Deep mutational scan, measured.
Amino acid sequence: KTVHVNGVQYDFDNPEQAERFAKEMAKKAGLQIQFHGDQIKIE
């Protein structure tokens, strides 16, 4: 899974790890999470 945070890309082999990371980042920055198939976007 790939997580995009403000244009920066983070790759994870483990989907659960990717989602946990995305939730942490979104919570910290007060941003929205969008799921697009294999990609998670935080903007």
Rank of each mutant, 00 (worst) to 15 (best):
K1Y: 15
K1V: 14
K1H: 13
K1C: 15
T2D: 01
T2Y: 05
T2F: 04
V3G: 01
V3N: 02
V3W: 02
V3H: 03
V3D: 01
V3M: 02
V3Q: 02
V3E: 01
H4T: 13
H4D: 04
H4E: 08
V5D: 01
V5Q: 02
V5T: 01
V5W: 14
V5R: 00
N6Y: 08
G7Q: 01
G7C: 10
V8I: 09
Q9L: 09
Q9P: 08
Q9S: 09
Q9H: 06
Y10Q: 01
Y10C: 01
Y10D: 01
Y10V: 03
D11K: 13
D11R: 12
D11E: 10
D11W: 15
D11S: 11
F12N: 00
F12T: 01
F12K: 00
F12Q: 01
D13N: 05
D13T: 05
D13M: 06
D13R: 02
N14D: 13
N14P: 00
P15E: 12
P15D: 09
P15M: 10
P15F: 12
P15C: 11
E16P: 00
E16M: 07
E16W: 09
E16C: 14
Q17C: 13
Q17K: 05
A18K: 00
A18F: 03
A18M: 02
A18S: 01
E19Y: 15
R20D: 10
R20S: 11
R20Y: 11
R20A: 14
F21R: 00
F21S: 00
F21E: 02
A22N: 02
A22W: 11
K23M: 08
E24G: 00
E24C: 15
M25C: 15
M25V: 12
M25T: 06
M25Y: 13
A26V: 04
A26C: 14
A26G: 02
K27S: 13
K27P: 02
K28L: 14
K28S: 08
K28H: 12
K28F: 11
A29Y: 15
A29T: 14
A29D: 12
G30C: 12
G30E: 10
G30W: 08
G30V: 04
G30F: 05
L31G: 10
L31N: 09
L31H: 07
L31S: 09
Q32D: 07
Q32M: 11
Q32G: 07
Q32F: 06
I33G: 05
I33C: 08
I33Y: 06
Q34M: 12
Q34R: 07
Q34E: 11
F35W: 13
F35Y: 14
F35E: 08
H36K: 10
G37Q: 08
G37E: 08
G37V: 06
D38C: 13
D38F: 11
D38E: 09
D38V: 10
Q39M: 13
Q39D: 11
Q39N: 11
K41Y: 15
K41R: 13
K41A: 09
I42D: 06
I42G: 08
I42H: 07
I42A: 06
E43R: 03
E43Y: 11
